[in-house]
């Protein structure tokens, strides 16, 4: 398994590029891209490998951000514990929302997740600990394991990068695991999976919960990077944005969602002086993408690389 296949070389090259990147590119931008890349990869675990379109993933992203911000600021937890707390809450929330939502499929599934996330948005507006419109500001990044000072931007960047790489490896493991095989079978033909004796709802629920936990991890990281947890993270806009990122990058691929996330974040950052035109530019790019390469950037690029013998 550990041979240097072209795929492994490509991944190593990407990691090397990511390591040197903050010397050339604004690190906060890179971290934002990685956080949203992880968010989109978590979302894609559900859409790309189980075929479930969730329209409420912001609730996991946003709530985990609140929990991490609150526990780090008010309780003084170290960053790794604050992140764990956020992920735990997102995972539990995922199990509860998933348990309800997987009873429906297609558009109804999307609607149940949307309704659930709107409820959580309302909670976020009303609950005192979230500080409503202000959000939780000035979240301390703290010392990782009590040792590494994350207020140093480079330290923070490499921490985010490490979590991101580990999470993508984890997602890759999940989709190639025996469990992943069953997920793909359910995606391809659910009645057939049932007729082979699989209780498909249990598999969907586990996938949903894993996806929610990972989306939460992305939100937690984001709240430490920006030292802020706000209503924008739980808003349905964020749920919609992650759909956009995943589709732009390539649904059902490992790197697609990250590529899509970087594209969207780059448009928001570098075209920010265009004001509300950003949304229009985004919309046009989306339309072009859907018309020209329906399988997303990576979905088009990967077969092209394969044909040139660059990847396995």
């Amino acid at each position: 398994m550990n041979r240097l296949t072209p795929q492994v070389i490509l991944v190593l090259a990407l990691i090397a590029a990511a390591i040197v990147a903050p010397f050339g590119v604004y690190p906060i931008f890179l971290m934002k891209g990685l956080c949203f890349g992880l968010f989109a990869a978590a979302f894609n675990l559900l859409l790309g490998y189980v075929g479930l379109l969730s329209f409420g993933h912001a609730m996991f992203f946003g709530f985990s951000a609140y929990i991490t911000a609150h526990t780090a600021k008010e309780w003084g937890l170290t960053p790794e514990l604050a992140i764990l707390a956020g992920v735990a809450v997102a995972t539990l929330l995922g199990a509860a929302a998933g348990w309800l939502a997987i009873r429906r499929s297609g558009i109804y599934f999307a609607m149940v997740t949307l309704a659930f996330s709107q409820m959580m948005y309302f909670v976020a507006v009303q609950a005192p600990f979230t500080h409503g419109e202000d959000g939780i500001q000035g979240v301390p990044r703290g010392h990782l394991f009590g040792l590494i000072d994350l207020s140093d931007t480079f330290a923070m960047y490499y921490f985010v990068l490490a979590v991101f790489v580990a999470s993508l490896l984890f997602i890759n493991r999940v989709v190639t695991s025996p469990f992943g095989q069953v997920l793909k079978a359910i995606r391809d033909n659910e009645p057939r999976a049932i007729s082979l004796g699989y209780q498909v709802d249990r598999y969907k629920l586990l996938a949903f919960t894993l996806s929610a936990g990972l989306a939460g991890l992305a939100g937690s990281l984001k709240s430490l990077v920006f030292q802020l947890a706000s209503l924008a993270d739980v808003h349905w806009h964020a749920s919609g944005e992650v759909v956009l990122m995943t589709l732009l990058g390539g649904v059902g691929t490992i790197f697609g969602p990250t590529a899509g996330a970087f594209l969207v974040v780059a448009i928001q950052n570098y075209f920010s002086e265009a004001g509300s035109w950003v949304t229009i530019i985004q919309g046009m790019i989306f339309v072009v993408c859907v018309l020209l390469f329906r399988s997303g950037m990576i979905g088009v690029l990967a077969p092209w690389l394969k044909r040139r013998g660059l990847t396995g």
Binding site: S177, P178, K184, A185, D188, A193, S195
Partner: peptide
């Protein structure tokens, strides 16, 4: 009714693996 994106071998293995009892093992290598 086949699983279109899985290979022929994988299709049959999906049926075999339920009995193997690893179907929920998301942390194990394929």
């Amino acid at each position: 009714a086949v699983f279109g994106h899985l290979t022929v071998l994988e299709n049959v293995r999906v049926a075999l693996q339920r009995v193997q009892g690893t179907s929920f093992h998301f942390w194990r290598s394929g």
